[in-house]
């Protein structure tokens, strides 16, 4: 299909300009999900917290590390993982969930993409409480490098935005994609060093970590939370990924944006 870059660019710019809509919708969606519950969005936080609190006593001895160094690693890693993968899995339903709007109105669909990203940023800032508690409890030093979390978050959010466009479109057309993506994410969870340290893998198996894009996405957030700077390689992968990803997603969006209502 012939790409229409003007319309895609206009959609993107209008989408960004409509920030009052998607910030509002993001909040509404978070509130809506936990309405009438006592803990609200902190339910997500509690369930991750309970998981970490339980598993740390199994995995720390299993991976032969002491709880004191394993707990912050697991907490920061899992909170980062939840954020990054939610962007992918919820990205798959970006357009299918917006069916009522898309089939009734002409509006920048990227509003829906930014809404998904914003919503997950909000959830992330609830979940980060776990890491804060762990950091304070274990007296992990907080210094300037901790501030690298902010650029890390921005990098992941920018990557998340193209992922929601790409996966949203592909999933709207091919309904097998969301369950497939779900499966792959589960697999990646064990392949990516979140439960285990990358050095434990041994030298021969290092490429599994080095070429794992998800690892780098996690690392730009996890390392600052643990008070260290992420490796430059992780920045190279994630910034490069954002550039390439946006090129691909934008090109596909320019080609198929007008087909999205037909697919729903």
């Amino acid at each position: 299909m012939r790409p229409d870059y003007t319309i895609a660019a206009a959609d993107l710019i209008d989408g960004i300009r409509s920030y009052r809509i998607w910030t509002r919708l993001g909040w509404q969606e978070v509130k809506r999900r936990y309405r009438r519950t006592v803990f609200g969005p902190f339910w997500a936080t509690l369930s991750i917290g309970a998981f970490i609190g339980g598993m740390v006593f199994i995995w720390a001895p299993l991976f032969k590390t002491d709880v004191k160094s394993y707990l912050p690693f697991l907490a920061a890693g899992l909170v980062s993982w939840t954020f990054a993968t939610a962007l992918i899995s919820e990205g798959c339903t970006t357009y299918t969930a917006g069916v009522n709007l898309i089939t009734q109105l002409n509006f920048p669909y990227t509003v829906l993409n930014f809404m998904v990203v914003w919503r997950n940023i909000i959830v992330f800032f609830h979940n980060i409480l776990i890491v804060i508690v762990v950091v304070i409890a274990l007296k992990i030093p907080v210094d300037w490098q901790t501030l690298l979390l902010i650029p890390g978050l921005i990098i992941v959010a920018v990557n998340g935005a193209w992922m929601t466009i790409l996966f949203g479109m592909v999933s709207a057309r091919f309904r097998d994609v969301p369950p497939l993506v779900g499966n792959i994410i589960t697999l990646l969870m064990f392949v990516t060093p979140i439960f285990w340290f990358s050095h434990q893998l041994g030298a021969d198996a290092q490429p599994i970590v080095t070429y794992n894009f998800m690892y780098h996405l996690i690392e730009v957030m996890r390392a600052p939370m643990l008070g260290t700077a992420p490796p430059l390689l992780s920045y190279a992968f994630t910034i490069g990924g954002a550039i390439i990803g946006w090129f691909v997603a934008f090109d596909l969006y320019a080609r198929f944006r007008r087909r999205i209502p037909y697919w729903l």
Partner: peptide
Amino acid sequence: LFNSVPGLDPDDSGYENIKTCGMF
């Protein structure tokens, strides 16, 4: 103005819906 008002969400209050639907 088709079958339903775009953006109307049953879990939101009337006021919230006036704002959301109005924006859409």
